[in-house]
């Protein structure tokens, strides 16, 4: 039975088991493709798994179902994470993951909504997802559709000015159906975020922009679930979950290593990495 028909999962142990499975799929997918983004896919895995499987109303057999909740991976380089979750949810056969980043594949290097039903909008050029999320939420509001909108951004990504344009719009229009997550793994391609272009204090920035802010450990499933509940109950303003995470989470030799932003595991590393994840 696919998870699409199984309903929402709120059991912490069950969600953590799904996170492990999703991390394994990410690593296998990336090893096979030989290119792609390892660190940022692993850092956001627990949050994305919790959003999809504990909160979202979706239908893998009917991806354009009007009452579905919307999910946007604004940091599009975490595409392998999205694909691993969608495979688990039943949007496509798990074998499709082996085609990542190949010419005819629906699994493009960055998510493409024209090639993969279930991807709401194409991403990859950073900083754009939140604007689209706002537009969706405003459209749903006009239709009196209670569907919610989730948007995951990276901490490096919020250096893009458009993010703050969108942050103003969300608050200005009081978009409380929107829950944004900033995956704060502390690293970007050229080094530590605070060294490349400091974004701190992150929470204060979102608060100053009129958002309800919840700061959590982005790998503590109980904290993630509580934050998602709080976001849903918060009315009149959008919610930003500032999730402190570890880049490469789950694999000791990838964790906090900036060089594994866009480098994939070797075959030998994969064996060891899967071992660590399964025993972790």
């Amino acid at each position: 039975m696919s998870l699409a028909t199984k309903g929402k999962i709120t059991n912490v142990q069950e969600l953590m088991a799904l996170s492990k499975k999703v991390r394994g799929s990410i690593l296998q997918m990336l090893t096979k493709s030989g290119s792609g983004h390892t660190g940022g896919s692993l850092s956001a895995a627990d949050i994305a798994v919790a959003i999809y499987f504990s909160k979202m109303n979706y239908n893998a057999d009917n991806p354009s179902m009007p009452e579905r909740d919307r999910f946007i991976m604004s940091k599009g380089h975490a595409a392998p994470l999205v694909y691993a979750i969608m495979a688990e949810a039943g949007y496509f056969h798990t074998d499709t993951m082996n085609t990542l980043r190949t010419i005819e594949s629906p699994l493009q290097g960055h998510p493409c909504c024209q090639k993969l039903p279930g991807i709401e909008v194409s991403t990859g050029s950073l900083g754009q997802g939140l604007s689209v999320a706002n537009g969706m939420a405003l459209g749903l509001r006009l239709d009196k559709n209670p569907a919610r909108v989730f948007c995951i951004m990276g901490d490096g990504e919020i250096q893009e000015g458009q993010v703050w344009e969108a942050a103003m719009t969300s608050a200005h229009y009081g978009i409380d159906s929107l829950c944004a997550v900033v995956d704060c793994n502390g690293l970007q391609i050229d080094g530590p975020v605070e060294k490349v272009m400091n974004i701190n204090p992150v929470g204060d920035k979102w608060r100053a922009f009129g958002w309800h802010v919840i700061e959590i450990d982005g790998h503590d499933m109980q904290q993630i679930l509580s934050a998602l509940d709080e976001a849903e109950k918060t009315k009149g303003k959008p919610t930003a979950i500032i999730a402190n995470t570890t880049k490469g989470k789950g694999v000791s030799f990838f964790e906090n290593k900036v060089e594994y932003h866009g480098v994939t595991p070797s075959e030998e590393q994969l064996v060891k990495a899967l071992e660590e994840i399964n025993n972790g």
Partner: peptide, 10 residues
């Protein structure tokens, strides 16, 4: 971006 989101809801 907001226009694109609105379009995606019909």
């Amino acid at each position: 971006g907001t226009a694109a989101g609105l379009a995606l809801t019909g």
